[in-house]
Design a protein around this nucleic acid. Sequence first.
DNA 1: GCTCACATTGTTAGCGCTCACATCGGCGTC
DNA 2: GACGCCGATGTGAGCGCTAACAATGTGAGC
Lengths: 333, 333
Amino acid sequence: MRGPAMTDVARLAGVSHQTVSRVLNGHPNVREQTRLRVQAAIAELGYRPNRAARALVTGRSQVIGVVAQNTTLYGPASLLAALEQTAAEEGFAVSVGSVRDLDQVSISEAVERHLAHRVAGIVVIAPVESAGEALEHLPKDVPLVTVDGDPGRPVPLVTVDQVAGAREATRHLLEAGHRTVWHVSGPADWFDSAGRIEGWREALQAAGAEVPPLVPADWSAASGYRCGQMLARMPEVTAVFTANDHLALGVLRALHEYGRKVPDEISVVGFDDVPEAAYFIPPLTTVRPDFAAVARASLDLLLAQFESGAVGELRQTIAPTLITRQSVAAPPR
Amino acid sequence: MRGPAMTDVARLAGVSHQTVSRVLNGHPNVREQTRLRVQAAIAELGYRPNRAARALVTGRSQVIGVVAQNTTLYGPASLLAALEQTAAEEGFAVSVGSVRDLDQVSISEAVERHLAHRVAGIVVIAPVESAGEALEHLPKDVPLVTVDGDPGRPVPLVTVDQVAGAREATRHLLEAGHRTVWHVSGPADWFDSAGRIEGWREALQAAGAEVPPLVPADWSAASGYRCGQMLARMPEVTAVFTANDHLALGVLRALHEYGRKVPDEISVVGFDDVPEAAYFIPPLTTVRPDFAAVARASLDLLLAQFESGAVGELRQTIAPTLITRQSVAAPPR
DNA sequence: GCTCACATTGTTAGCGCTCACATCGGCGTC
DNA sequence: GACGCCGATGTGAGCGCTAACAATGTGAGC
């Protein structure tokens, strides 16, 4: 009951299986007439090449493995989708190996699973501290790219320029006339958080503004809400930069409850530009990372490794864009 | 430079490759002592079985292919993540084949790509009309499950009970005292939309309430906002059920702009229970589908097909839950 | 007409694994 | 003590494909 194999096609076309293989792989030295005959036979039989057999002999399948943790968050989900799209354009399938925790063991296991399938390359979305360690102890025999990983590690890496994005967001608020800007940050162990904190602090210091205490949170609207409850009570707070849009949503909600008008009394800037950000109350000024560009860069790094064989220490940084909406205004006088 | 193969392990352990295979596959008839020796050899060599070779000989790889369209939307993304999680528990990897449009050609191609890899089974997330046709013309030789597909087609199907969810949401509003409930619906060609419309209409009719004109939208906050602008102008509107939470967000924003208080003047109920819904202004009452249950059911249907070989016409329906928050109140008198 | 270069096609040998079957030894049974 | 049975292990074939090489055919150049 198995489908037709290459030899069946060959027999029907009156050639050898090798010629069929050549047609399939676009080998140049095949006579046009022969090619057509083979293609006709392929169509007639509904033949579908067996990737597993090819993977066995070549030692590599046309699959890219992705290791990620929480693909429900907007960022990772978008990235995954973009990666999948880009990979498809290059003729690769994407296999997802999600992982409960981003610790060394979990990551190693996920990578091992992908290696067992002889994937052509691996993309690890490793946005937290604990993942860093794992990456250096992985088998070196497979092209691998890290996304959102530790900027300090000597591995191929693609990242969004968190620092620049945060700097721009903060500067935007300062330029609107605010004396300083508060920051609701993401989880401490995420590199994204660290970069956004750094950019925020840099911008404040560059402007000679006071650096207020950091307000730590996770990525959720819930924790944004809790932070917002505190910020709302402090009369001096006139500008808040949150580490992502969902935090901003929680902050907005808290401010609203406390009767603090946004942007009249307090300005808010987020990060991510989730599709809904334009419909928050008020519409949220935010920083948009270009996930498609990240995906493209990751794949390019992988493809480069396929060709050179060398695992370079390349890295790519993608600059995000500030999207201005109505959640920012001059501070009240 | 290839890694060790089964024969290498066999040689080191002083057994035949077949015995190694038996150990790997948990075959019962292996002496404990032999098993340990083999496992030691595996560990020592860092041996990793080659899935491609196994797939070649068995004709099936331990991979489940998923065909989906827009994995950035909250629903599909959650479903995909849940599917991946569940599959991993059963020892399967998940390969994603996303597709630009859900028409017959795109779906067939995506399925073909998966078949070329000899996946063990395929899950098609086929929430729109145009996908239905394709499903009946697919090769029958692979276990396949449809999620959110056409309830009218004779294919294995897992769905969230949209009708029940919408009915409950609408009834909840009626029970709060509203004379009738308006509905902002999803895209016309989505089954999800159709089911939610049906449940809404049923609940109204069951209560003898007037059925107001349908307000059509897509899934975005942007279109919710546009609909909200209309709804806000109609004094008679006191209760709105939107087809998802993002629409609700847009509606809330429009109502806010027009000075219509939620829930004092107008009550709103959404669908999906996105994590942020609890932090909308006001917190949104909504209907929560259980994606984990959908994923579990899909995989069970697939596994059942693996065993029986028969492609049953099974179907599973997952009931969603109403989550009440503060966006619903009695209508103004 | 013969040689050589080159384009085209065929042949052979695995890739690493599982399946079906063969083999071997130890045990209980009459 | 010979017989059969069963658990434990080995042997050989082949899954469908590609890579390397061998074997043709074709035309230019002399």
